[in-house]
Design a protein around this nucleic acid. Structure first.
Length: 221
DNA sequence: AACACGCGCAACCGCCCCCGA
DNA sequence: CTCGGGGGCGGTTGCGCGTGT
């Protein structure tokens, strides 16, 4: 990929200065969000509209929470990732004050490793058998005894791609108080999804498939 | 104290989707 | 129906900082 700092003559690239931030904030306060392609010119910024949008959404928005993720946020991310795959914007949409970029970064830097250390494949939330340790076997029974049971479910004939279905699925997670229990992370070891084809190549092409489990959402009981 | 290494995060890129003409 | 532009999203990169040697 290109360096952020290249090709600076026409447009600023790389880190945003305080002045640029302030211009963007001032403009959006006055005129609101939207029309990003026009905004840089109107706000007097030598940035492309996309860059302005990204800066605003990921960093300048006043309702951003920032800071460390709470444990329940972590749990929710893990659950939603198991449910939705790498749909960061959807996941972030369920975490007030968090952005997709932030969630994505947090996943890649913290949670992924956390799952790996637990012997769970972060791509499909399945237990990696070869990483099992004798003292910590994947035991669904022990999982259910902790109040969270993940069931193995047949892969549905139709992938869960419909927006309403996704929304319904999320509602299930949200509405059910038990859906957000203390997630004993050991339990993720009991995730047993049907084998999920992890399509390499253009991720966009495989989008409907990469909703990892796409089960009938008996995930959390 | 100096250097190497690893990690986290901000930012960019390219692709796709949606919508209006 | 087709096309083009804008907006949104996920993947990736690389800088900067902290930590270890």
């Amino acid at each position: 990929m290109g360096k952020p700092g290249r090709n600076k003559q026409a447009k600023n690239q790389g880190a945003w200065s305080k002045q640029e931030d302030q211009k963007l904030i001032d403009y959006i306060r006055k005129h609101g969000e939207g029309c990003w392609s026009y905004l840089p010119q109107a706000a007097g910024l030598l940035r492309c509209g996309k860059s302005c949008r990204l800066r605003w959404i990921n960093y300048l928005r006043p309702d951003l929470k920032r800071g460390n993720f709470a444990e329940d946020e972590e749990d929710l991310i893990i659950k939603l990732h198991a449910l939705l795959g790498n749909r960061w914007s959807l996941i972030a949409g369920r975490l007030p004050g968090r952005t997709d970029n932030e969630v994505k970064n947090y996943w890649n830097s913290h949670l992924r490793r956390k799952l790996i250390n637990m012997g769970v494949d972060p791509n499909n939330h399945r237990l990696r058998q070869n990483l099992l340790r004798p003292h910590n076997p994947p035991n669904p029974a022990s999982a259910s005894s902790s109040g969270l049971q993940i069931q193995a479910i047949q892969k549905p004939t139709k992938p869960l791609v419909d927006k309403e279905q996704v929304s319904d699925a999320l509602s299930c997670v949200e509405d059910d108080p038990c859906a957000l229990p203390d997630l004993n992370l050991d339990l993720t070891a009991s995730f047993h999804y049907p084998s999920i084809p992890h399509v390499e190549g253009n991720p966009k092409d495989s989008r409907p498939l990469d909703i990892a489990p796409s089960p009938t959402l008996l995930l959390f009981q």
